[in-house]
Design a binder for these strands. Sequence first.
DNA 1: CTGAAAGCGCTTACAG
DNA 2: CTGAAAGCGCTTACAG
Lengths: 337, 337
Amino acid sequence: MPQNTKNRATIEDVANLANVSTATVSRVINKNGQVAKKTSDRVLEAIEELNYTPHSGARQMAGGRPNLVGLIFPAIGDPFMSELLEGIETKLVEEGYDLLLYSSQRLGESPRFLPLNEHNSDGLIVFADSLSDAELARFHQLEFPLVLLHQNAPEGLDIPCVTVENKKGASTAVKHLIDHGYKNIAFLAGLEGHEDAEWREIGYREELAKHNIPFRPELVGYGDFSAETAEAAVENWLLEGINIDAIFAADDNSAQGAMFALQRAGKRIPQDVAIVGFDDITFSRYMSPSLTTIRMPIKDVGRHSAIQLIKLMKGEKADSLTLLPTDLIIRDSCGKD
Amino acid sequence: MPQNTKNRATIEDVANLANVSTATVSRVINKNGQVAKKTSDRVLEAIEELNYTPHSGARQMAGGRPNLVGLIFPAIGDPFMSELLEGIETKLVEEGYDLLLYSSQRLGESPRFLPLNEHNSDGLIVFADSLSDAELARFHQLEFPLVLLHQNAPEGLDIPCVTVENKKGASTAVKHLIDHGYKNIAFLAGLEGHEDAEWREIGYREELAKHNIPFRPELVGYGDFSAETAEAAVENWLLEGINIDAIFAADDNSAQGAMFALQRAGKRIPQDVAIVGFDDITFSRYMSPSLTTIRMPIKDVGRHSAIQLIKLMKGEKADSLTLLPTDLIIRDSCGKD
DNA sequence: CTGAAAGCGCTTACAG
DNA sequence: CTGAAAGCGCTTACAG
């Protein structure tokens, strides 16, 4: 095997073995340009024979498109990652793109070079809170295709955003509770600074206001999208003897934690305290009682982010905001309907 | 801004602006070679000013190391992904590597070029069932650093593997059930062909044999690591009137599905049927009753796979098998202790 | 349908 | 401490 020191075949090795020029090899690999069937077969054989894989770096440098899009997501374990991926990939694969993911820890780190960038990707899908505003601005200035997930673009940057109708979903949840006669409705907040969480709180407040139920700050519990934290918040309400007959949780994990704390304290759900969650994670239907919640169309979020990004990569204009509708899923945690 | 057509600064633009050679810019970026503080500062300013990001492809081609490792995982939504990532990243970041993930769908696809390969990565961590034997063999032949997760190397390939003590964990689970006096112990299998699943079944059988309890094929329910499928399997047992007083589920999702089916049929857990799971997912402690299960040290799996890969990347020899111990977590689904 | 040659943006000896 | 120049492995006009 004619190979270099690192024992890796190059396009030249392939060309030599197949008795053609590197240009021809390039043509059969990229399926562009005309190549005689016989020649092409010989090249394919040589590739096989030499265990050849093209050097993507060289390819990009020479002007080939990466055919690659990156997804940047924060460290936080997102329960939806796999569903989201499914939505994104399906669409992207149809268009011939590969997807690479980068989990962006260490936001604080000063001048860092992202491993996925304008040089090796055709576009980026950026999950909420995984890139700094400065990094976003840099890409924007480069006119590099970018789509934001669950986060609006920073002031002044015109970057398309895909998310769900958080406010409306939250209103629906609270209305459901109110319709069932509950009045003392507490709210288990989501992660501070997280847009989804914030819109859900706004939906909660607005719906209360709409029904002339005064907002009471002591009924907002601290949360961070985790069951543990929600447990603690509910225990605190119980401890302080605050009168609550229903809880709207900003996410299903928190709803789960709340249920747990309530039941441990001898409260019955929904007889003593009703609960509505948000997200509809896989587990929600298995909770006991099964959880009434607002379903997020995660796969659609993925699919639409891919759709918008593809538009951008094709040089077309994308929609600056895609708002996907949520669904109220009625189960047993609010009392029968 | 002196930039090319695509409006992206190159190292030459930076060099010009800072009034130095490209060699010097390269030196400050890579922090190798001596550079006067004053010069270095000027270069850093120029980089900032021009919004410059190095072209990773060019860098690799010129002989720079990618400082990048890839993780290839199958499409299957793995509930542990985030924990696994945490373990892997922590170690890798310490050593200065970035981590990029590729979800490898479409295994069937014929000649494909992986976007993460010997040209742009220093090594690869490969999750069970995400690469074909041929692809594994190709990398192995290239002497490219590779670590396998939850999967042994194919015949003849000497590739280090990191996984957990599945067999022993399963035995422990079954023994726990036997110690509680259960005799008719059913098994809810995991995904067929999945090594973890297979070892768990072997552990189940061996422990039965050890206690002279005959293995009964009708007590093995079809499963695929999902709650839905487990529900169906349990319903089937119920329908056929098969006598079962305990279930060992190959994974917690299946255990959850089993509980649901059992409870819907009016069975009490653990009084009528006891259950032990495997994995200890976040949710297990919130199930009702809370689930007794075998905990997988996922973060350790991640950490050790990084450790082994780093050895390989440094040219050292790695351990061919790393087996991480599991733990029996006793909760309420088997009766009190 | 095929090949010779330039050029992409870097890094690394080599020289000073 | 710094620079000139070769070379990494590709793709793409250009020519035939």
